[in-house]
Design a protein around this nucleic acid. Structure first.
Lengths: 351, 351
DNA sequence: ACGGTTTTGAGGCACGTGCATCAAAATTTT
DNA sequence: AAAATTTTGATGCACGTGCCTCAAAACCGT
């Protein structure tokens, strides 16, 4: 029974290992053995110490421990090379966060990888050892190789965190939004923003091979079909990041379907498809919804060519990932602090 | 000799005050004098040390410094007594955060106050000294007394942070959302969700004396008038937190205005007005938008009696405030880490 | 050159924890 | 009971910084 977790008077000092030793009736050396899980301590003695921990409400001073070990945290963000604007924002915030976290002895670095070469990613992860690095945040499509590499990494004692776009239902560990819910949100806004009695919705992605797009599409269709049966969703168009291809498939689709009343751009890089749509002769009152805030989408929102933006704040993402990695590499046991990334909805009036 | 801010190899240690002393060609005592701004150092010597700091990219190890000073942070949340559900959530998260931040030597406490007694608040703030407490987050209506008390507190070296609802345009320091933008967002959603060719919107607040409500109303009207001229906003109804009064004014308003197509509940406690509306015989397809996620509003969103919720995540608010206070009390000079709280839009599909 | 003042250096202890060593005590095995 | 083994205690250094004291050095005005 802990009397109180918190000092009732300001000057009440926090219990130290010395206090633990005194209360448990053992030496500081033994307290140390228990706290750090070393061998050769009678279970009876362990119990005495843990009882004292509970009684005093002892919390290990991590700063002091890190100082003693001269430990500093080194985290690596494994990110795709491809430089779309969203990724640029992420990079910028990683460097910014690097400076902020420096005084906490946290280093954050970026390792660019070819996101479509699972072997290369796996090889990189395999090259990391606990001595070199304390945690990795990985933004890459889910593949069996990657999944295995992450598991092995965790087994070697380096924590790995899916970042933004990755591994399906690593769920509670992912730093990023629930893409299915994001798709649902887009659909609800789309359905309610569209006043036409019926019509079709154009759906554009960079590639439907990425899990993100699949999940968004899933959520989107689910809500449109269930709640807005007067609307039809067209098959996903894929740009593969190419402007020419985007031009081709989008114009083809708009000519084939005269009743388009909405456009949903699922990929994080909305610039290419939106520029193409700009040039296409679609009716003005079309509702368009895209993802991620970038200089381009922000501007598009302002001038009305986009009606809503589903976003995740890059700064929050980065800082949250860093804090999560720190928590993970500190207490392998305690539950991670619940830092759920929320889906933000941006419209012209709250950017 | 190390030019880079960041270690290129993992084992490159961070420069310490000892390194600074060596490079600057002075003693560690002098480095200490410069670092901590003590008097009696020739400006020439100061320059030598700051040059070394720049050259090495020295960053003070705050953990070690705090350890040496046996400093721990003590922050106080000054919150209204009144226990609405939103406040309950805030309280819960403060206690939760207290445990998480304990290992970083951060204590967070709550001081309940009567939010409508500026004198009492000012007196409490005046009773605080830098020795007792390192920072205060204050949630209370703006008054001249409070503003003065906060200024004086800051002068005494205790940082004060407006929390959620407070001081007008302390702007960049406020932990909370921009209420004007929140009102605008509500209006945009309202305007686009309403399909009726014309109609009136009911606006309900707890009290229009609070700055929050005023700003939300301002933003709301601005957007409705500008972008949705076919809609009319009715004068704000005030409940003063009383169920009877809410019942009276709301039923009166609904009888007086037959063309109500939307309801906007501005106050953070949406339960009372919504329960009244539930009993009122309004047409089913009315669009209703409220603020803050509570067990009640969450449920209302699920069962469709609310169409959208403008929220700020209580957990984020609390943790952000704590981190902000820590940053403030650490470096009185450096720019605070940019932790802007975003306006979240919740609809049935992304709760 | 003198005394006085300002500036600097040297050294040491403290903070709370990790880690190492060696001896002492307790327990088990022979 | 002696020997072997396990468990515990005592002690000390280290981490990086703050803060203290005292003396040495550099500078000042006369």
């Amino acid at each position: 029974m802990q009397k109180s977790l918190r000092p009732s008077t300001p000057n009440m000092a926090r219990p130290t290992t010395k206090d633990l030793a005194r209360v448990a009736g053992v030496s500081r050396a033994t307290v140390d053995r228990v706290l750090n899980g070393r061998e050769g301590v009678k279970s009876e003695t362990v119990e005495k110490v843990t009882a004292a921990i509970r009684e005093l409400g002892f919390v290990r001073n991590i700063s002091a421990a890190n100082l003693a070990k001269s430990k500093s945290y080194r985290f690596i963000f494994v990110l795709p090379r491809s430089g779309d604007q969203f990724l640029d924002e992420i990079l910028r915030h990683i460097h910014e966060a690097g400076e902020v976290f420096a005084s906490d002895m946290i280093w954050a670095e970026v390792q660019p990888i070819d996101e479509n070469d699972p072997h290369q990613i796996a090889a990189f992860l395999a090259s990391l050892s606990p001595g070199d690095v304390d945690g990795v945040a990985i933004m890459a499509p889910e593949t069996p190789q990657l999944r295995d590499a992450m598991t092995r990494l965790a087994e070697r004692g380096v924590c790995a965190l899916p970042f933004i776009s990755n591994q399906a239902l690593s769920g509670d560990n992912l730093v990023g939004i629930d893409n299915r819910a994001a798709g649902k949100t887009a659909a609800t806004l789309m359905g309610r923003f569209i006043h036409a009695p019926r019509g079709q919705i154009l759906v554009i992605a960079e590639s439907m091979q990425s899990r993100d797009s699949l999940e968004r599409r899933l959520g989107f269709d689910q809500v449109i079909n269930h709640s807005f049966p007067h609307l039809t969703t067209l098959p996903s168009l894929e740009t593969y990041g190419s402007a020419e291809r985007a031009e081709r498939v989008i114009t083809a689709a708009t000519q084939r379907n005269p009743d388009i009343v909405g456009v949903y751009v699922m990929s994080s890089e909305a610039r290419i498809p939106l520029e193409v749509l700009e040039r296409t002769d679609l009716p003005q009152q079309i509702v368009s919804i895209a993802h991620e805030r970038t200089p381009f989408t922000e501007n598009a929102l302002r001038n009305g060519s986009i009606d809503a933006l589903i976003t995740q704040d890059p700064g929050h993402l980065v800082r949250s990932a860093i804090r999560r990695l720190r928590a993970l590499s500190d207490n392998l046991t305690t539950s991670t602090s619940q830092e759920k990334i929320r889906i933000e909805v941006l419209i012209a009036t709250n950017i």
